[in-house]
Design a protein around this nucleic acid. Structure first.
Lengths: 146, 146
DNA sequence: AAATTTTGCTGGCATATGCCCCTAAACCGT
DNA sequence: ACGGTTTAGGGGCATATGCCAGCAAAATTT
């Protein structure tokens, strides 16, 4: 199996597989792997605008907005108007969001450890470098120029 | 940017970026990159059951079924009952599907070439190896054992 | 041969993602 | 200050993906 010589198809297959693995690992936390990533990123910043968050996640703003819906509905996130910019809204973790994230983090750590062990730490590190490169703005611009 | 030490988050960011790039490249064909992959895979087999196709794409069967909807609605695919198994259905490209795929393939080739040039051929080949490994059944089993 | 289990799909529901269009607010050049 | 442009979000629409429940047919067991 696995035949098309398409790099995009290849990364999607790998992403689906990893999604399965990480989603399963996080199941008991009630969070999807993508939601875990969103919460973890917000916590890292403390509070930030949706545009900045979307950029960090290399995600379309609308897509992010939609994804926040369920998280806000579950009271994991809190949004407020940006005091410095009437257009913007800032998101932060709620107390419940912080608790949920803490619990999920332990489950995530197990999955991440398993991933590194299965692929090999060196390979995982190198893969990570390449993935970060591909996700960079720089890469998109370079790609566009060719 | 790019901070969480999560491999799953990293591959998703990279996948979103590549999705943007490949989708944009294929725009004029009327196909999404994911749809291109589905058509290309079906062509490669000529005709096959949905389960086999889903396995090749490392995708959930239901997810695949849903994705086929638009393609069938656009008459790019044809499905028929499997003569050998009353439960199964087989999919094949329609004439229109073949034409659409041919046109899309040229656009895809440009994107793929740009991708290789931007990342570097050696790095792209190595990345591909790792991604295929991650997408393998073997990887999932190994991961589960740890 | 009948009952049980397994297997292939579909349909419903929910999240994931992206595009386009619209509104409001901030910015900017004159 | 004013009008045009850019920027932040929201809403609608469509595809992408996955889980689960349900149905029908095949395979297996008794």
């Amino acid at each position: 199996m696995i035949a098309t010589a398409c790099s995009n198809a290849a990364i999607r297959r790998a992403t689906r597989q990893m999604g399965q693995l990480y989603d399963a690992a996080l199941r008991d936390s009630g969070l999807r792997a993508t939601q875990y990533t969103i919460l973890a990123t917000i916590e890292r910043y403390g509070s930030l605008g949706l545009g900045a968050l979307a950029a960090d996640l290399v995600m379309d703003r609308s897509a992010l907005s939609h994804s926040l819906g369920p998280l806000i509905a579950q009271n994991l996130l809190r949004t407020m108007a940006d005091p410095a910019d009437g257009r913007g809204r800032r998101v932060t973790l709620s107390a419940k969001g912080t608790r949920t994230l803490e619990k999920a983090r332990e489950l995530w750590a197990v999955a991440e450890q398993k991933f590194g062990a299965t692929l090999g730490l060196a390979a995982a590190a190198e893969l990570r470098r390449q993935l970060d490169h591909i996700a960079s703005l720089d890469f998109a611009q370079e790609f566009a120029k060719r």
